[in-house]
Write a protein that binds this DNA or RNA. Structure first.
Length: 584
RNA sequence: GGGGGUAUAGCUCAGCUGGAUAGAGCAACGGCCUUCUAAGCCGUAGGUCGAGGGUUCGAGUCCUUCUGCCCCUGCCA
């Protein structure tokens, strides 16, 4: 008992815990710099050797915990063989309580093996920080706006929008987890040519026409859902969408009423899709509002005043080639209306004026041609907007596979697979996971059979199962009449000496870096990869070692580790918008 | 033609700002459930990282040329 108390006191002493990875790297850098200084003082190195010292986490545990390549980068200039120089630096390193030993390895790496106590401290951090573990404050409260999905209300959301929703929402979560003040926004056009096309299509359906009839409007929307809109309109249905409320007028001749109704109806459909997908927007922004507020006109006036426009063929052009575009673009068409490009510029100027120093637009890669154009338009405003503002995350196309062949049609939408179809069939969690687990830049094949499978080939359940397992262990613990307290578990951590326990601890220690990196690069898929690896190591550990052992202290320590894994899995899944179930 | 993306195991994909013998899952083959949930674990096999040059101590990663695939190239969004 006395022994236990002593150990607990030692584990809780602040001096040996709470050394975060950046601090650790910094301290090792300083040790290396001191070694270099000592070598320079002896005349064995040229004076004023101040390299940028890179400390990296090792990939292989046999290479220690951290490693530096200074000897490799310095060898040539110093006139030594890399391994010899590494040895000299090693010998000159001051002793540190954090480091248990160092070695020269490979072509000239210096490997650092940290003392066990410092590495196990991460478990304590996870348990005490809970949901906060992995969060950081890189954003320092600065405001960032993320625009994504931004589908026009002309039909149900398709798989591509789903990818945008999954990636965009996850980026929002990552940014908020790294200290940014995040505003999510959905932008859509409720008044353009596509919308009048929609209204004409619904009107045709109201009159009992089908897409194959001679009087069907040219370029009309052919999907079955148009008929649903028409039926609801004629029935005088009331529509409540997030940002608009309309009742059907039942008059097939009133095109304005049909348009208002159709837009509200399809916006409501999209709202339901997004709700089923657990995606929330802080604001819906209407393109038409830019006309009503005069911002479109003001934008034109400003571009003209700045001398970046000219008239040709009856149209008004913006000289975007002066700002890196490969050809100039029409702003105002010959017939008087504006192209979508101009409101886009006005919209982004609006974002800028709202004070977002950082803006991320998540879009399908088929829109990539607008990137240069919008940025050029913003530069032409001469409003001191940084070049390269805003940021873009472009995702590549999604194809859906079933039974080994591509699925192209949806009953509702006709020509594409809807997000709702996927959610209904495979569930929100699996759909979100699969759409966010790949790099946005890579084309995505959504395999319905894989997403549906409830076996070991489905990574979503694999990760969720790790969480459920940890919960189940706690339940089993109680069943057997034992209890577990966090403080006792933390005090017992030194009992964790198995290789798999060390590997798990090391993996947990990586998590904050993974989150920070994913947020910085707008790449949520790296979180998914990390979780898969963490889950794999936990499952492996679980199978190799019993957690609920009779040895109370060891049991306390193992539950502490299991709880820490559970917490990190939960935190990571939240970033992906996937649930962490307690039982499966 | 021009621009962007991409090419890694039979399939789907990782590979963190160049680092030590290239990873995982599926598919294939062989094992593990009277013991904390087998939605799990262990093992075997599988590769000229599309091709050729270049940069350097070191290249799947950076540069260049070529080839294949996807997207864009509208006074549609």
């Amino acid at each position: 008992m006395r022994c236990c108390l002593a150990r607990r006191r030692a584990a809780n002493s602040p001096q040996k815990t709470q050394v975060s990875l950046p601090e650790m790297k910094e301290q090792l850098s300083q040790l290396i710099q001191q070694a270099l200084d000592a070598l320079a003082a002896d005349g064995r190195l040229p004076e004023a050797t101040q390299p940028t010292i890179v400390i990296e986490r090792t990939r292989d545990a046999s290479h220690g915990d951290l490693a530096s390549n200074v000897a490799l980068t310095l060898a040539k200039a110093a006139g030594y063989k890399p391994r010899d120089l590494a040895g000299m630096i090693c010998d000159a390193l001051p002793a540190s309580p954090l480091v248990s030993r160092t070695e020269v390895a490979g072509p000239g790496f210096i490997n650092f093996f940290l003392s066990g106590d410092s590495s196990r401290a991460v478990v304590q951090r996870v348990l005490t920080e809970g949901e906060q573990f992995g969060r950081s404050n890189a954003g320092a409260g600065r405001r960032v706006q993320v625009e994504f999905v931004s589908a026009n209300p002309t039909g149900p959301l398709h798989v591509g929008h789903g990818r945008g929703a999954a990636v965009g929402d996850s980026i929002c979560r990552l940014l908020s987890a790294t200290g940014w003040s995040v505003a999510s926004e959905f932008y859509y056009n409720d008044a353009g040519a596509q919308i009048s096309n929609l209204a004409l299509s619904v009107q045709a359906r109201c009159r009992g026409l089908g897409p194959d009839d001679a009087q069907w409007p040219e370029d009309g929307y052919r999907g079955d859902y148009i008929a649903d809109v028409a039926t609801a309109y004629l029935a005088g249905e009331k529509i409540d969408a997030t940002d608009r409320h309309v009742a059907g007028k039942a008059d097939p001749d009133d095109l304005d009423a049909i348009r208002d109704f159709a837009v509200a109806y399809l916006r409501r459909e999209q709202d339901l899709d997004l709700k089923a997908f657990a995606v929330h927007f802080d604001r819906y922004f209407l393109e038409s509002s830019l006309y009503e507020s005069g911002e479109v006109e003001a934008t034109v006036a400003r571009l003209v005043a700045n001398g970046h426009t000219y008239e040709q063929d009856g149209a008004l052009w913006l000289r975007t080639t002066a700002f890196g575009d490969d050809k100039d673009r029409v702003m105002r068409k010959r017939e008087g209306g504006y192209t979508y490009f101009l409101p886009d510029v006005a919209y982004h100027f609006n974002k800028w004026q709202r004070g977002f120093e950082r803006v991320i637009n998540e879009q399908g890669a088929d829109h990539h041609s607008t990137v240069t154009r919008v940025r050029a338009g913003l530069q032409a405003l001469q409003a001191d907007i940084p070049q390269g503002w805003p940021d873009y995350v472009l995702h590549q196309m999604v194809t859906v596979m079933r039974d080994g062949s591509e699925v192209k049609l949806s009953k509702r939408a006709g020509s594409y697979v809807t997000l709702r179809d996927l959610i209904d069939e495979v569930g929100c969690d699996a759909t979100r996971y699969f759409l966010v687990a790949r790099a946005p830049s890579s084309q995505l094949t959504f395999d319905i059979d894989l997403a549906l499978s409830q076996s070991n080939d489905n990574p979503v359940y694999y990760i969720q199962y790790a969480h459920a397992r940890a919960c189940s262990v706690r339940a089993k613990l109680a069943e057997q009449g034992w209890d577990w307290e966090q403080a006792r578990g933390i005090a017992a951590l030194p009992r964790l000496e198995e290789e798999q326990e060390k590997a798990l601890i090391k993996r947990l220690d990586q998590y904050p870096e993974v989150v920070a990196g994913a947020a910085l690069a707008s790449e949520p898929h790296t979180v998914a990869n990390y979780l898969r690896e963490l889950a794999a190591e936990f499952h492996s550990y679980y199978n190799a070692h019993k957690l609920l052992v009779d040895d109370g202290e060891l049991r306390d320590a193992r539950i502490a580790l299991s709880e820490a894994v559970r917490q990190v899995v939960a935190n990571g899944l939240w970033l992906l918008g996937v649930n962490a179930p307690e039982a499966m």
